[in-house]
Each structure stands twice: as C-alpha cells, then as structure tokens.
Design a protein around this nucleic acid. Structure first.
Length: 645
DNA sequence: GTAGGGTTAG
C-alpha cells in the first residue's frame, strides 16, 4: 500500500523537482519512486549529472528501465568515463533480460573503448547479431588510436565480409592504421575503396590519407592528396607540415607553415609542435625563438606536448639553457618532458646535469622513469665521460629500487658497450656483447669499432669490422673507421687490402651535408659544393684557414679518405668536406669573436673535427658542431666530446 | 553514437 501522495508532498514541497531527489533519504526516495513515470526521474538525474542517484533509481525501477533510461545512463557514463558504473548498467540490462537495440549496444562499445577496456568492447561487438556501421567504426577507431594496427585492419576486413559498407568515419579511422611502409599496400587498397564508394574526398579522409602516404615515406603522393583537397584546414595543413618534418624535408615544412600564415589560417598546438620538429632539424635557433614568441602572444593555453617540443627544439638548436627555462616554467610534466631535457643535456655532453636532473626526477617521484629515460641517462653519462656513474645506473636498472625498475633492452646494452668503450675497456665491451641476452645490433658493433679506433685496438677492431661487413657490407662508415684504425696503427698493407675490398663491394655513402643558419636563411653545403653564390670566396677561405692552422700544428688525417689517390689529392678531397665549407662560411660571414654553429647530417669526420679545433684556437671562435650523434662545443682548441664520439 | 594532424629515444 502506497502512502498518500499528498502527505508526502506536504512534507517535501520540492519533491517533484528532480534536482532535489538526491537530498532525500533512501527510504523516502524509495517511497516516492512509483509516483514518477518510469525512466523520467532517471533521465532527469542523468541530465543533472547525478550518476550515483541515477544508479539508485535504476536499481529501484528494476524491470521498468527501458530505452530512454539506459540511453541517459550510458551517455552519462561515457561522458564521465565511469567504467564501474557503466558495467553496472550493462549488467542491469542482462539481469533484467532487457534486449538492447543496436544503438544501445553500440553505446556500450563506445563506453568500453573510451575506458580502455577494448577486450570487453570487442566481446560486445562479437555477440551482436547485426552490428551497425557505427558499432564497427567505434571498435576500429579504438584499435587505431591505441596502435593496434593489425586488429583494426582485420576488423575492417571482417566488416566488409559482413557486407556492411564503410562510411567516411570508418575510412578516416582505418587509414590511421595503414602507417609505415608495410601499411602502404593496405592503404592503397583502402584508397581505391574510397574512390569506389564515390562520396568524393572528404576533408577528414583526406588528412588521414595524406598522412598515410607521408608516414610511408611517400611525400609526393602525400602532397598530391593535399593539393587535391576540396578545402584546407588546420589539420590537413598540419598533416602535410608534419609529413615533411618527419621525413627530414625541414625547409619544405617551413615553407608550408609560412604559406599557412599567409593564408591566415589559425595554427594550433599540434601545428606548432610539427613546425618545431622541422626547426629542430635545421637547428634554427632564431626562427625557433620567433615561433616561441608567436605562441606566447597567441594566448594559446599551455600544452605539455608543445612545451616538450620547445625543450627539444632549444636543445637541438644549441640553446640548452633555454630548454631548462621552459622545463622550469612547466607546472605539469610528462615522462617525455624529463626525457627531452635529459637527452638535451646528454647531447651537449653535460653529464653532471643529466645525473642531477635524474636524481630530481626520482626525488619528485611524479612520473616514473621509462626505457627512454634510462637510455638518456646512460648515453648522457657516456657523452659526459662519466663512465662509472653510467655503469652504476645500468646495474640499478636490473637490481635497483622498485620504483624505477625498467627491463634493459638492446639499446641499453648498447649504451653499456659505449661506456666500456669510452673507458678503453674494449675487451670488456666485447665480452659484454657476447654475454648479452639479445642479438647485438649494427649500432652496437659500430660503437665498439669506434672505441677500437680511439684506443687503437687493431685486434678487436678487425674482429668487429668483420662482423659489421657481414651484416651491412654496403655501409661506408664502417670502412672509414677501420681504415682510420689501420692508419693510426701504421698498417698500410691492411689498408690497401681494405680498399680492394671496398672496390669489390662498391660501397656507397649517404652524401654528407652541412649547413649554417644565418639571418634565418639556411646555407647548405655538400662535399665539393660549387653551388653557393659565394663559392670562390668560401674555397679561398678554407685554404687560407688550413694554411693558418698548419702553422699552428694541424696535420691532416689522411685516413679519412678512402679513395686510392696520392696524399696531395687526399688533402684536396678533405678540404672539400662540407663541414669545412660551412665553418669557413661561418667565419667569413660573421663578425670576429661571434660563435659559429654548424650542423652536419652524419657524424663529423676526424679530420674535420681536428680542423674545427684548430680554427677555434687560431681564430678565437667558439664553434658548435652538431652532428647526427651529439653537440661538439669547441673552444680554444678543446672539444666538449673529449675527442671520443 | 563512430572520423583526420603532434612531443623524447633508436
């Protein structure tokens, strides 16, 4: 028997205003529920965001809950990512034998995917008799977003087999999973399906498509898609900028950004992050600062990702103190923030700073160090000459405090080889490689070969080189290092045999390239380059510098030349190296005393390294040389790398 | 209800 409604209403005048339902005691609540039409209070509670009360109402209404009620509940759970509560709703459907329509089942899939329980979402999908295109797409999109490419593609194929035609949402999602060279074939198939589906180029699909081509290294096709877009927006422009930047077409990326500015399109933080990648590649500090000012002026909210990009850009442009300023100014930091800062210090050879920052990271205990953190710390110790400290950190990885136990991977073992090699413990390094639980990579052998060169260990060097020639016979760098080694040891006969071998294998070398940023223009030099407008002048300057530094004791390192020519010819070849052209250009185009920054796409050669050291001393200039591995800060004839690189 | 671009390491 229900109490009289008027009685209750008399006690609680606000009763029919559902906002106040949650203020009632459960007993009263229970009593009044029957006076409401089924699901209506449930819906109201959900609209007000009162999830707890809505769940109570669901329990009380029991079998009365129908489509509207469940829909409101699930929507609220999805919006607030309330997994536990969502599961209760799902379970309620099952216990009350409610048979949900496709729409509600899809809502459950969305709920589970948003809450990162993809297995549960997939279970729901697999049990559906007739999933809609939205059900399929929600699941495919979830796989794509989390990098489960294979699952996304397989599910897409299954969807096609089930006879469900994809829509533009599906295509945009599935294309995200066609990344990399191996995804390209699938991507092309999807592309032709899109064309057949005949709903034209939508812009969403277009951005996805161009990104797919760019990530496969196919920049021309990416550009083709971009050009054919019916309209451009920030995302599609960012996609093409990011595509260029990721493939190292930094100047093209920058051109695209300038075009975006000219067209008056508003950039967002992803756009800026992509532009910064390009600027990092170019080492263009001035331009980087300009972009930073633009971002500060634009009143864009602070995004951790973008701040991380600034840290990285500044350190790669030689301004690691600016990196630290950005780092210190951040109120929230991700593991990438710490890693970027640690890597920055490491590349500049600032080992002590690496260790201090890592200690701070452990003390603050806000983010857990990951595999990249340890790589940054180990390689930072190596570049900074802190061998024992590095080895200690490696031991801690295996047997350290629980907080940061990270399983060492092959790259970490590589760092240890580097550490031992730097310390001159070449034999130990070789033993270490033999005992490693994983296959040594070419990078590891290469690092050991480098150590053999610095420490003139011909015996181990020969052994290591043999391995390397087996694995990558076409890499000229390995031949260069071994020939350096033979030359150092005066083993001219071995050197001759090596040259024969090279002729046989016809090894090729990625063309060396160096550049200098001046007045926001990139001046690029290739070996023997004659394309620069001031080429004659530059060459004269190189010769002039070489005469000057020879007086100060500079001797060419002829083993850096692999061609079988006479010594005079070798000197000519060496003087044409792109680093020297760039250094000479820097010296002649800037006022005396001003520091010079030169960037090289490969590792700097030993002869050019010596050249830079002597020039820094004779011309009294600080020369920063960024090669593919680290920064060389050269001052008064001494390099921050300690001649080990 | 479902969709596109981004940061560290190698």
């Amino acid at each position: 028997m229900l109490p009289k409604l008027t009685t209750i209403f008399h006690i609680y005048p606000k009763l029919f205003m559902t906002n106040y339902l949650h203020t009632l005691t459960p007993q009263i609540f229970h009593q009044i529920i029957p006076y409401y039409p089924p699901n209506s209070n449930l819906k109201n509670l959900c609209t007000n965001g009162q999830l707890k009360e809505a769940l109570l109402a669901m329990t009380i209404e029991g079998y009365q809950v129908k489509f509207d009620g469940y829909d409101s509940l699930l929507t609220l759970c999805v919006n607030s990512k309330a997994l536990r509560e969502g599961r209760r709703v799902h379970a309620h459907m099952i216990t009350t034998r409610y048979c949900p329509p496709v729409y509600l089942e899809t809502r459950i899939i969305v709920l589970y995917t948003k809450c990162d329980v993809l297995v549960d979402a997939r279970n729901v999908l697999d049990r559906m008799r007739e999933p809609s295109v939205v059900s399929w797409t929600a699941m495919i999109s979830a796989y794509s977003k989390r990098g489960y490419q294979l699952e996304a593609l397989n599910l897409f194929a299954k969807m096609l087999r089930a006879g469900t035609p994809p829509n533009k949402f599906t295509f945009a999602s599935v294309l995200t999973s066609c990344t990399g060279a191996c995804g390209l074939n699938h991507g092309r198939q999807v592309h032709s399906l899109i064309v057949k589906s005949n709903f034209g180029e939508y812009i969403f699909v277009g951005s996805s498509l161009l990104d797919m081509y760019a990530k496969a290294g196919n920049i021309r096709e990416a550009r083709g898609v971009f050009e054919s877009l019916p309209e451009r927006d920030v995302v599609s422009c960012t996609a093409i900028i990011a595509g260029y930047a990721q493939l190292g077409y930094d100047e093209e990326a920058l051109d695209m950004f300038r075009q975006l500015l000219r067209e008056g399109l508003e950039s967002n933080y992803v756009t800026y992050a992509s532009v910064l990648t390009a600027l990092s590649g170019l080492a263009s500090l001035d331009y980087g600062k300009q972009v930073h000012n633009r971002v500060l002026r634009s009143e864009l909210p602070s995004y951790v990702v973008l701040q991380n990009s600034f840290i990285d850009m500044y350190s790669k442009c030689g301004g690691v103190t600016y990196s630290r300023k950005v780092f210190d100014g951040m109120s929230e930091r991700s593991v990438i923030t710490w890693n970027a800062m640690l890597v920055g210090y490491g590349k500049h050879g600032l080992g002590q700073e690496v260790i201090e920052l890592f200690q701070l990271m452990r003390e603050e205990n806000q983010v857990k160090p990951d595999s990249v953190t340890f790589m940054a710390v180990l390689s930072g110790c190596s570049h900074g000459g802190l061998v024992d400290e590095g080895l200690k950190f490696f031991d801690e990885m295996i047997d350290g405090p629980n907080a940061d136990r990270v399983r060492p991977e092959v790259e970490h073992y590589g760092c240890v080889v580097d550490l031992l090699g730097r310390a001159g413990r070449v034999e130990n390094a070789l033993e270490f490689i033999k005992k490693m639980p994983c296959e040594p990579t070419t990078a590891i052998w290469g690092s050991l070969l480098g150590a053999c060169r610095v420490h003139s260990n011909v015996l181990v060097g020969k052994f290591v080189a043999k391995r390397l020639f087996e694995i990558e016979p076409e890499n000229a760098g390995n031949y260069v290092i071994l020939s350096n080694l033979y030359a150092l040891a005066g083993r001219w006969e071995d050197l001759r045999v090596l040259r024969e071998l090279m002729k046989e294998k016809s090894v090729t070398k990625e063309p060396g390239r160096s550049w200098v940023n001046l007045d926001r223009t990139v001046h690029t030099f290739h070996a023997g380059d004659r394309s620069h407008p001031r080429k004659e002048e530059i060459m004269r300057k190189v010769v002039e510098l070489s005469v000057k530094i020879k007086e100060a004791g500079f001797v060419h390192n002829l083993s850096c030349v692999l061609h079988d020519v006479d010594d005079e010819q070798k000197e000519k070849i060496l003087l044409n190296h792109s680093e020297k052209l760039a250094i000479a250009f820097g010296v002649m185009s800037t006022p005396s005393g001003r520091p010079i920054t030169v960037v090289k796409n490969l590792r700097v050669c030993a002869d050019c390294h010596d050249f830079a050291k002597f020039v820094s001393k004779v011309c009294e200039r600080e020369i920063s040389l960024r090669d593919s591995n680290r920064f060389h800060r050269i001052l008064g004839g001494v390099c921050s790398c300690g001649d080990y690189w």
